[in-house]
Design a protein around this nucleic acid. Structure first.
Lengths: 207, 207
DNA sequence: CTATGTGAATTTATTCACAGCA
DNA sequence: TGCTGTGAATAAATTCACATAG
């Protein structure tokens, strides 16, 4: 198994596992079985074991997984030990919420810079980050920030993405409800919160 | 093909299609080919055709899809013609952003009620919605609101979900970074924005 | 005796390639 | 001729069942 390509779905689940492991760690647990972790996360035990097996053996048969060790391994796989800083572009409603979001910490992430093109916002400080002019995006290269979060209106999303790519950004989390085109080497993950709400009714019986 | 179960992945893509179709409609297009829609959305033409084929024939060979008609069909499949109102619980940073989010409209959705347990917020109006006390959640049943958005801190997410289920809510969009347990008949979609950011580094070569 | 790790079986989703309709 | 709709082929992910390690 060790020499297979890792399924994308497995990668998608790793942050979920991490979240569960860190929570259990907070609660005082030192080790955990795949079954216990599965129950806690609402998943299947065999899936967790299978996922981990793609990366080699982490656990101890008869005992389970040592949480500290597993957390370290998963963070390493996700490269969370290397890339930690992200820039935010667009400090509107959603952008401000992202800035204030407390959940990045557990992944050792922080939003290290924020940009907007509204003169009223530039220079202001939110959550200890001073908002800069969008025209300063080029400085990201020097600052070694290679991840960015786009939270601008749909119309300027592509333009923003272009500027980010030019500034050397390699990964983009896109909150604008549109497809953005980037060079193949740049990874984009798009989240449209309305889209997720839109598929909810499908699953609901309307008597 | 007509009598098969519809793949979950197809359902996940329908809102994407809808977004593209509505945009092209705004731009003045009356009909569109699977190829053109695919290019616009960054997807494959054959996948779009295959997805639509699960629901029967929508298009005209040699011409393409009539946008108006297709939009209506897709909305019907997603049951967006029936369920349109959602309640928001938790008007913090993220909750406020959700309230102000302009993207729900295209799916004929609106946030029709907002709840919080902070006395300073209760009674205030945001985006024309008066914030109500969380203890009033039970009124959702009478108001025929069966969808809800959870944007409360992790610690109170499960408690909130329990109250929503008791109030007759059938679908929940959960922004809290934790698994919530609900009866099988209730559908939950969890979005954790930090989790999506956390899997971005994996895809980025770190020379 | 318990819980992992993994080949094999099964299910699900993607991609292809082309027949057939406007 | 152009584009849809769909069986068939391929690929991917999930689930099972059990040998194996502590």
């Amino acid at each position: 198994m060790r020499y297979h390509k890792i399924p994308d779905e497995t990668i998608r689940r790793l942050p979920v596992y991490l979240r569960g492991l860190l929570f259990l760690s907070e609660e005082g647990y030192k080790s955990v079985s795949s079954q216990k972790l599965a129950d806690f996360l609402g998943l299947n035990a065999w899936q967790i074991r299978k996922d981990f097996s793609y990366f080699g053996a982490f656990g101890t048969p008869g005992v389970g997984y040592k949480i500290d060790k597993l957390v370290k391994q998963v963070k390493k796989i996700l490269k969370l030990d290397v890339l930690k800083k992200a820039a935010l572009v667009g400090v509107g409603n959603l952008g401000s919420a992202v800035l204030a979001y407390p959940g990045f910490g557990i992944y050792d992430f922080r939003v290290a810079a924020a940009f907007d093109n509204d003169p009223k916002k530039i220079g202001r400080k939110i959550e200890n980050i001073t908002i800069e002019d969008t025209s300063k995006l080029q400085t990201l290269k020097k600052r070694k920030i290679s991840l960015a979060i786009i939270a601008v209106p749909r119309d300027s999303a592509q333009k923003t993405a272009d500027a980010l790519v030019k500034a050397g950004v390699k990964g983009i989390l896109n909150f604008s409800p549109c497809h953005i085109t980037v060079p193949k080497k740049v990874k984009v993950i798009t989240i449209d919160i309305a889209m997720d709400l839109a598929r909810l009714p499908y699953y609901i019986p309307t008597r």
